[in-house]
């Protein structure tokens, strides 16, 4: 009965703290008033790119710093799903796109230039309470035959199918939920994404999401330039130049240090240098 007295206060507090959308209104984005300049379309992918992240995320900071160092202004448009970014890249022939799980065919790739901008550690993860003895991973996908894999919408799932793995497509948040409710057996994502998602959405499950493999795989992240755009090839070269400048000046490391521990910063820079060097 006592609690009832506080109910309106709790309700009001809940409303005040909520970031929920209450009524249909215009989404207020920079693009409403900005004339785009060297526009790059990116997929919302925390913590690398995101509308609600500090400076729109680590990868956005890297790209902006690199292009600024070669005196190029750019506009970043963040879109909610990979397929939208793919649409603009391939159908509207825009200058450039950024996003990891954009499924591109061999034919598509012929008209694109991939500029690596960073490396991320990725791993397969499972829910420990559902698989207490873990997985017998020996380094091949076929070791996971018979299990179900939560894939991203635009991910190339052919290797999993060939290995006899059942595919359950979905969005990252939904896949994590399915992993925890034992509807799927394993998923793949960058370690940084796993940490970010668990902190933000599933803090009580942090100890239960375990990597299948002991060693994470280093995966490059790219800005993809369009050769069919008149400025595509020039801007691709400019971004590569800009990256070299920011790495050389230490600015690249400064950006990474905001998001990563020091030993990971040097490892990533070394690996990116190896990728960029001919």
């Amino acid at each position: 009965m006592k609690n009832r007295k506080f109910f309106p206060v709790i309700l009001l507090l809940g409303l005040m703290l909520s970031s929920a959308v209450n009524a249909t209104g215009p989404r207020v984005t920079p693009g409403m008033l900005v004339v785009p300049e060297n526009e790059i379309f990116a997929v919302d992918a925390q913590p690398f790119v995101g509308t609600d992240l500090m400076n729109e995320g680590m990868n956005v900071e890297i790209v902006k710093a690199a292009l600024t160092s070669v005196e190029i202004n750019s506009t970043l448009t963040i879109l909610p799903v990979a397929k939208m970014v793919k649409y603009y890249l391939l159908q509207e022939q825009v200058l450039a796109a950024h996003g990891q799980y954009i499924n591109l065919s061999k034919k598509d790739k012929k008209s694109l230039i991939f500029v690596p901008i960073s490396l991320t550690k990725e791993n397969y993860f499972y829910y420990h309470p559902a698989h207490k003895s873990g997985f017998n991973w020996q380094g091949k996908l076929s070791d996971l035959s018979g299990y179900s894999y939560g894939s991203y919408q635009e991910e190339d799932v052919a290797p999993y199918k060939t290995a006899g793995i059942q595919i359950v497509p979905g969005r990252l948040h939904a896949l994590l939920r399915k992993l925890i409710s034992n509807e799927i057996d394993f998923i793949r994502m960058p370690v940084l994404t796993k940490n970010w998602m668990l902190d933000k959405h599933f803090p009580l499950e942090k100890e239960n999401i375990i990597a299948i493999t002991t060693e994470a795989e280093w995966v490059p992240q790219f800005v993809i330039f369009n050769k069919n755009h008149p400025d595509g090839e020039v801007l691709a070269r400019k971004l590569a130049q800009g990256l070299a400048i920011t790495i050389g000046s230490g600015q690249y490391a400064t950006i990474l240090k905001k998001y990563l521990v020091d030993d990971e910063v040097s490892e990533r820079i070394k690996r990116l240098n190896d990728l960029i060097q001919p």
Partner: peptide, 26 residues
């Protein structure tokens, strides 16, 4: 003034020192 929850890319507007007052209804 804007509607609550319709505001995106907060960093961009913060850098410009633009702040919005959010409302729950039109």
């Amino acid at each position: 003034g804007i509607l609550k929850g319709t505001f995106t890319q907060i960093s961009y507007f913060n850098q410009l020192d633009i702040h919005f007052e959010e409302s729950y209804s039109q």
